[in-house]
Write a protein that binds this DNA or RNA. Structure first.
Lengths: 336, 336
DNA sequence: TTGAAAGCGCTAACAT
DNA sequence: ATGTTAGCGCTTTCAA
């Protein structure tokens, strides 16, 4: 393996000149630069990451801590990760993957051990044991999601309150006055991750504004769970003409359940679904949907953490606005 | 940040003694060890990863290169990743995440730059541009999947040939003689990733052995695609009584399609599905299935690459045996 | 059982 | 515009 000294010798310059040529931190003459580039190429030189980290106290690595729970929507999770990796590479950083269950220990191992010089942490809960750890760190971090007691920790997320409102606004504009919400599994609410509650908050607020009557039910990822939720909603709101689904797994099951109950979408029941566009488009009835811009959130998180790394100020909380894509599952309610 | 020198001073020993206490590479007196442990704790000392990598030429990092294509089954992908991360932590390694599209450059950056001292690469295709790169590396790597020209590169995978056979064996034992295969999307076959072809290979071989008549159709992840595939299979094999589905996304759609065609599962048509157990269990009719043991494959890959790292020999190709879980979607064909 | 000291390969003052 | 050099924090020989 060639070292910077080999390159310097080969190019007839000092090691520092090679270093500066690489970093661009000081001007290099055209001729020197050419010789250096050549030498690098012919020797197949790559800087040793560890040596570099030691000398510069920068690892050029950002740690990404992901939940690998089975009540999460995995494709969305991977979109976050993709956004993070892509943005990180754009900032010339690599990504170290940590799992949620490594907890605060994992975070401090990676941070204190100088493996990573910045952190992106997903799915932080209220009262999360990792928050105190994150606070004591000398390294910048950004949370994806809105932690209850995040204090001045920086975070990015979709504006789930606005998403809940947007769903109801759309339905209300179409004339719906009785709307049910098929929610996340109970475990998600009891974890108090926040996003699910925030969605309900927006949903409820908008309903009141529109004078619509609403009901809310959590929902498991099973046909039985979906059927139970739908029945409960109908029992509570017999005149229900629209459903909002905040549950990516349940959406296809919901469509099937409604069809087996003889309710047509959107003729009898309109549906607005929180899900990725490709899921919405693949459904038997393409769903009007609000997507979680997961890749964008991931890359924003990295941009923000890089800003902090470079001493620039980053906003405390960034909420991305939701966008609704109108498809075939929503229509005006038919007169009764 | 405390250094090893700080710890040594605080404990009244030489830095090297601290180092040896940490690595266990030479005996340390009980008293010294106790003092060192204390000092480490009170100073909150963590070895600097870069310094360690520089001095020892070991990064204690394994790179994981994942495909982030949208024709893959994402939950399965994440299970691979989880298996890799868990096993890596068990070997005291961290995981650096690379995406497929970084290609050979990404691999050599990470390897030649000494960021990672071992690599796990998923979803290598026949004629993959990364294989020559992998070959020239001084670092051990293990492929997940079976590359066509992998030569003496080490790889692990499910034995997809055996899986294809197992599916047919099960159906043949029940008495089925006319079996259709609903396959992966065409793009998967044209990429020649191998696993899909190997499944067909086993499927076909077993069918011949049992004297069963078969037909095969690729299948997109859409209702239209599923309907087309099913119709084509029925046209080719009018007496069809069983389907094998090698397509996790299509499985739920298939069930719905059959039901809308008035064909009952398993009374009219039996189904064996390649999919994770929780998907199989959540279906309206719980599916008899063969799971890809993704987490296990991931952790085996890491175990193997660690073996190589320690100079131990690793097998060229490891194929894990498939296991079939009998559920409610298969039964003997009803007499006609 | 322990210490002293020479690097590992790079960066960044400090010189010129 | 470029060279010299002193570390960065650790591991590991060599010596005791």
């Amino acid at each position: 393996m060639a070292t910077i000294a080999d390159v310097a010798r080969h190019a007839g310059v000092a090691p520092s000149t090679v270093s500066y040529a690489l970093s661009g931190k000081r001007p290099i003459s055209e001729s020197a630069r050419r010789r250096i580039d050549d030498s690098i190429r012919t020797l197949g030189y790559r800087p040793h990451a560890g040596a570099r980290a030691l000398a510069s106290s920068k690892s050029n690595v950002v740690a990404l801590m992901l939940p690998l729970r089975d009540d999460m929507h995995v494709p969305t999770l991977l979109q976050f990760a993709t956004g993070v990796v892509t943005a990180a590479r754009g900032h010339d950083h690599d990504v170290l993957l940590l799992t949620h269950d490594e907890g605060g220990d994992g975070i401090s191992r990676v941070a204190t051990g100088s493996m990573a010089d910045a952190l992106v942490v997903m799915d932080v809960e209220r009262e999360d044991a990792r928050i105190p750890v994150l606070r004591t760190l000398d390294r910048p971090c950004v949370l994806i999601g809105v932690a209850g007691d995040a204090g001045e920790l920086t975070s990015v997320d979709l504006d789930f309150v606005a998403a809940g409102e947007l769903a109801v606004d759309h339905l209300a504009e179409l004339g719906h006055r009785h709307v049910g919400l098929v929610g996340q599994p109970p475990s998600v609410y009891s974890r108090r991750t926040g996003f699910a509650d925030r969605f309900i908050e927006g949903f409820t607020a908008a309903s009141q504004r529109h004078g619509a009557r609403v009901a809310v039910r959590p929902c498991e990822f099973t046909y039985a769970g979906v059927a139970t939720a739908v029945e409960a909603l109908l029992a509570e709101l017999p005149e229900l003409t629209a459903l909002v689904v905040h549950n990516e797994h349940a959406a296809p099951m919901l469509l099937e359940t409604l069809s087996s109950m003889g309710r047509k979408v959107p003729d009898d029941i309109s549906i607005v679904s929180m899900c990725t566009d490709d899921v919405a488009e693949r459904m038997r009835v393409p769903l009007t949907s609000i997507a979680i811009p997961a890749a964008e959130i991931g890359s924003r998180a990295v941009d923000m953490v890089m800003n902090k790394l470079h001493g620039r100020e980053a906003p405390g909380l960034t909420l991305l606005p939701p966008r609704l894509a109108r498809r075939d599952s929503t229509a005006a309610p038919t007169g009764r």
